[in-house]
C-alpha cells in the first residue's frame, strides 16, 4: 500500500500531459519531505539576509527583500507541510520514505537516470579541467581542435551507444558530426572561444 503511494508505475508517465506538475503524481509524504527541505532553505536564507550589512536605512537594506522572501517562503512551506500531514503524510514517515527510496532505486529507469547524471557530471568536470587548443594550418584555413571537442566526442558517442543502441560506428559518426557542427558555428562563424579554453 505504502509502496504504491510513493512510487509511480511506469505506465503513469506515458500519459504525461502538459507542463511539470500536471503529470507527475505526488504524495502527501513527498510533499511533507519537500516542505521540510524548503523550510530549512527559507530559514537559511533569512539567517544570511540578517547578516548582510545595512549601509543606510532599514528600508533600503540589501537584506530586506531576501528576508521577506525567506519569511513568506517559510510560511508557504508550513502551509504545504500542514496540508501534507492532514492528508496523512506523516504516518510511518521514515519507513515509508525508505521504502519509497528503495522502490525508486529498484526501477531500471531511475538507475539509468542516476548513471546519466554521473556521466554528465564527469563530462562537464573533465571539460572544465582539461584545456588545449590545437591549430593545424591547412592550405585553406587553420583547422582548430580543442579539448572540448576531444572530450565531448567520445562521451556523446558513449551516451548514444547506451541509450540509442545503434552500432558503435554509427554513434561515433553522429557524435563527431554533431560536435564539429556545433564547434564550427561558434568558432568560425562567431569567433568566440569554446568552453574550457579559459
Amino acid at each position: 500500500m505504502t509502496q504504491n503511494e510513493s512510487s509511480e508505475p511506469p505506465e503513469e508517465k506515458a500519459h504525461f500531459t502538459g507542463e511539470e506538475g500536471g503529470g507527475e503524481r505526488t504524495t502527501p509524504r513527498k510533499d511533507l519531505g519537500a516542505a521540510v527541505v524548503i523550510g530549512i532553505l527559507a530559514i537559511t536564507a533569512m539567517a544570511f539576509s540578517l547578516r548582510l550589512e545595512v549601509p543606510t536605512s532599514i528600508y533600503t537594506a540589501p537584506g530586506l527583500l531576501p528576508f521577506l522572501t525567506g519569511l513568506s517562503l517559510l510560511a508557504m512551506a508550513i502551509g504545504l507541510g500542514v496540508g501534507a500531514i492532514r492528508d496523512g503524510g506523516s504516518k510511518d514517515y521514515f519507513a515509508a520514505a525508505r521504502a519509497g527510496a528503495q522502490n525508486y532505486l529498484s526501477q531500471q529507469e531511475a538507475r539509468r537516470t542516476l548513471l546519466l547524471i554521473a556521466v554528465l557530471v564527469f563530462y562537464i568536470f573533465l571539460a572544465g579541467q582539461i584545456s588545449f587548443n590545437l591549430r593545424l594550418p591547412t592550405p585553406f584555413f587553420v583547422f582548430q581542435f580543442s579539448s572540448w571537442e576531444a572530450i565531448s566526442m567520445p562521451i556523446l558517442a558513449a551516451i548514444l551507444w547506451f541509450f540509442w543502441r545503434a552500432p558503435i560506428w554509427k554513434c561515433g559518426l553522429f557524435s563527431i558530426l554533431m560536435i564539429f557542427f556545433l564547434a564550427g558555428i561558434f568558432r568560425y562563424a562567431f569567433h568566440i572561444l569554446l568552453p574550457a579554453v579559459g
Partner: peptide, 12 residues
Amino acid sequence: LILPMIIPVCVI
C-alpha cells in the same frame, strides 16, 4: 538519438 544530441548544445 535526439536527446543526447541536445546535451552538447546545452553545454555550449
